[in-house]
Amino acid sequence: MVTIPVEIQLLFAGLLFLMGLVGLLVRRNIIFMLMAIEVMFNSAGLVFVIAGAHWAQVDGQVMFIFILAVTSAEVSVGLALILQMYHHFKSLDVDGLNKLKEIN
């Protein structure tokens, strides 16, 4: 079905992962950091599916479903943490979170 060399596909997934990593390192807004983590998860799942398609096995897709479950759990807890953070600090900037003590 696909005659694209698998190196190109893996390169695409790697570029996507790199974009997520750069976004995570550069942005300081915590919502954008969570979105960058989503991009990285997604590209990791893409590598699983590419490998599964390359060897014509189902295991890659099964692993993608597990990654999907992990991602949805991570996102729900992460967004709840973001809400708590905004509630406490009135800011979404992670550089403001350098104190261990609760601000009264």
Partner: peptide
């Protein structure tokens, strides 16, 4: 879909673009 994984393509849209993005 191009890679021959139609089920995963549907899951991607339903769960990522549907549920997770709505949470965001």
């Amino acid at each position: 879909y191009i890679l021959g994984a139609p089920f995963i393509a549907a899951m991607e849209i339903i769960i990522y673009a549907g549920a997770v993005m709505v949470l965001f």
